[in-house]
Each structure stands twice: as C-alpha cells, then as structure tokens.
Design a protein around this nucleic acid. Structure first.
Ligand SMILES: [Mn+2]
Ligand SMILES: [Mn+2]
Ligand SMILES: [Zn+2]
Ligand SMILES: [Zn+2]
Lengths: 154, 154
DNA sequence: CGGTCGAACGCAACACGTTGCAATAGCAAT
DNA sequence: ATTGCTATTGCAACGTGTTGCGTTCGACCG
C-alpha cells in the first residue's frame, strides 16, 4: 500500500518547497549562488523557529567564509517568497519561522523563552477585533505577543 | 471658582508624576543624579511616543556629555516605576511611551509609520482570546501589532 | 564556448542596544 | 563636615542588523 501524501505527520515535514528555489529565483531575474545554496541547505534541515544568528553560525559550519550581510539579504529574498517569516522576540532580536505555511502570529513566554503559534481562530479574533476598532488591517505574520505561558504564571 | 482637578483635558498633561521621582528613587535605595535629572527634564516635555535614540539626542542638547548606556539604564529604572513603557517597532527598535497610564498595546502602520493605542476593550478582547486558547497571560504593555491603518490599505 | 549585463558578493562603516569593570560620587549616618 | 558604603557612571568591547560601494561572477545569448 502506497504512502498517503495528502497528510504529513508532524516529524515528516514537507521539504520539497526548497527544491524549486533555484528555478523560482531565476524566473524572477535573480540568481542561484553558492552562498544561497548553503543557506537553503541549512534551512532544509530546520523546522519551526530559529534566530538569524543561529542560521549564520550553521552556515559558517558548512562554509567558513559566510558573511552576515549576505545571509540577511538572502533571508529577505526568501521571506518575499514566503519560505521564511520573521518576527521579533521580547528583546527585538529576529526570529525566523521556517516554512511558515498559513500566516500566523507567535506567542513568546518571557519566563521560559518557549514559543507557540497563535491558532487560526485565535488569530482571526485578533484581526477582527482591530478591524472593528480602527479599521486596522493586521499583518499577523509579524505579530509576536509576549507574556507568560500557562506553566509560568503564578 | 477653583479649577476642577479630577479631569484633565487632552493637551493639559499631568506632569506631576515626575516631581516625586527623586524621593521615590531614594526610598528604593537608588540615587538622584545629574544624569537622571537631565533625562527626567527631557521626558517632562514629552507626551506619547519617543524612540530611545531621540531621547538620547535630546539629553545631549542639554548635557553634551550624555552617554547612551546611562540613558538606557535610567529608562529601565523609570520603566520599573511605571513612568515609561517600551515596545518594539516593526524593525525591532525601541519606542518609549511616556506616562503610559493604563496598560495598553500599540498599533503601528507599516505604510505611514503612525501609531495608535489599542483601546481597553479591544485589548481585553486580545487578552481574553489568548487566555482561552492556551492559558497564555499577555503582557499588553509590550505588544506592538503592525499592519496597515485605515487610510493606508487599498 | 566566449562576451555582456547587472545581481549578488565581501567588506568596511555605521546604528542601536547591552554588558563588565574600574573609578566616581550620592546619600545617610556619625 | 567627614566618612563609608555602594549605586551609578563612563568607557570600551561586544552583539545584532543595515547600508553603500567597488568587485565578482551567474545567467543568458550569439
Ligand atoms: Mn522589549
Ligand atoms: Mn520586522
Ligand atoms: Zn513559560
Ligand atoms: Zn498608515
């Protein structure tokens, strides 16, 4: 019996999005370079959240000549393609979400440092509340709300 | 007939909170220094939102020897006293809200750069939604949600 | 397979914020 | 007024991220 491919279980992440990157870049008049390949190889092995700093050091493990500005610029390109999304932690530092899938915000616990995704219905409640208030259109992908998780308060 | 003092009109900000600062500092075993006086004098003349960088340059106008680390450390102290509150703009840079009054979050328009306060009822809706979801306790004072304001979308 | 164009690179400088440490100076008590 | 304790300062170094610019090299074409 063949594997079902409509549903992927949690630890069997669909990594195929990365395969199309060289073609998508060239189609947009951009270029596929060794430096970009290094970063994409690193991202391929990741799921969930990573800081930019960690990505840079992982790249440097593979290519000792890695330069921060190149990595940041490539991350910007990949974000435009929807392959990563960044937010800012409590201290303002960048956190990247790899293969974010459906647009969503994040929760950050100031006590234990763990993160959670805001579930679609909850995100929608936030979007609706602010649309009703001032007609404000929330960019959920960039929302990181800090506070204390269930395990860390009182 | 004497002035009513229970209600202050919008452009008549109650600045008296600053008067008690020297005493409050000493009561907490802290010190009232010329550097702190400079910053408090600057804050006195402000209302609403200011970036840390702008505060530093305003301090330098009054005292050319002003040092950034001292200003940042004093802002931390004043934040513990509830006299300022900081959030992070879209780029992660710090924004200080002077005399924030009741705890509230902020909205930031990515297009025009303007900011709004999230009204109490709307803030409560956000807090409630996340409490119901994961039992998460939101620190509203640190929330900055970015997106597009009514005037800037479509 | 060369030649051309300009996207991307590396680097240096900058901006913002934090941290460790030795020297200074509030402040309270004498 | 002097003294002693220690909070605070200034500085230097660091961490993270951005920007400008001259050089390189990827992609496409003949
Ligand atoms: Mn913060
Ligand atoms: Mn951002
Ligand atoms: Zn926690
Ligand atoms: Zn706007």
């Amino acid at each position: 019996m063949p594997q079902v491919d409509e549903h992927l279980i949690d630890d069997d992440i669909d990594t195929s999005a990365w395969d199309g990157v060289p073609i998508r870049l060239r189609a947009a008049g951009l270029r596929w370079t060794p430096q970009r390949r290094t970063l994409v190889d690193v991202l391929r092995e990741h799921q969930g959240h990573v800081t930019a700093t960690e990505l840079i050091s992982r790249c440097r493990e593979r290519d000792q000549t890695t330069t921060p500005s190149t990595v940041y610029r490539t991350l910007d390109v990949l974000e435009e393609f929807g392959l990563v999304a960044h937010g800012h932690g409590h201290d303002g530092r960048e956190e990247y979400h790899v293969l974010p899938g459906e647009t969503h915000g994040h929760l950050y616990c100031e006590a234990c440092g763990r993160q959670w995704e805001i579930r679609p219905e909850t995100g929608a409640a936030i979007v609706d509340a602010l649309a009703a208030d001032l007609g404000f259109e929330v960019d959920l992908s960039h929302v990181t709300i800090s506070g204390h998780c269930q395990g860390c308060h009182d």
